[in-house]
Amino acid sequence: MMTSSIEGSLLLHHTKNKGDIAATKAIADLTLKGYLILTPVVCEHLPFDFVAYKDNKCYKIPLLCHFPRGQSRLSLMRQ
Rank of each mutant, 00 (worst) to 15 (best):
S72E: 11
G70I: 09
C65F: 00
C65G: 00
A26V: 15
T15Q: 15
E44S: 06
S5F: 02
M1F: 12
E7K: 05
L32M: 09
M2A: 11
L30Y: 07
L64Q: 02
D20K: 06
Q71G: 09
A52Y: 05
G70S: 05
L30E: 07
S9W: 12
S5W: 05
H66T: 04
L30T: 05
R69W: 10
F67L: 12
M77T: 02
A26F: 10
T31M: 03
H66E: 06
Q71R: 07
E44F: 00
H13M: 01
K60V: 00
L11A: 13
D55V: 08
I61V: 15
P40D: 10
I27Y: 02
F67D: 11
I6Y: 08
A22D: 01
S9Q: 13
A52R: 01
C43K: 05
K16Q: 15
I6K: 11
K25V: 05
M2G: 12
H66D: 12
K60Q: 10
T31P: 01
F50S: 09
R69Q: 15
V42R: 09
F48I: 05
H45Y: 08
N17Y: 08
A52F: 00
D55W: 07
R78V: 08
R78K: 05
Q71I: 06
K16S: 13
Q71D: 03
L12V: 15
S75G: 05
R73C: 02
L46Y: 02
H66G: 09
L38V: 10
A28V: 13
P40Y: 01
L10F: 12
L10T: 11
T31D: 07
N17A: 11
V51E: 01
A23S: 09
G70P: 02
G8P: 07
S72C: 04
N56A: 15
N17I: 02
A52L: 07
A52T: 04
H45I: 04
G70W: 10
L36F: 13
I21C: 05
A26R: 10
K18G: 06
H45Q: 04
L76Y: 06
K33F: 04
T3Q: 11
T39V: 13
L32I: 06
R78H: 07
C43R: 10
L10K: 13
I27R: 09
K33Y: 03
H13V: 10
I27C: 14
I37R: 09
T3N: 03
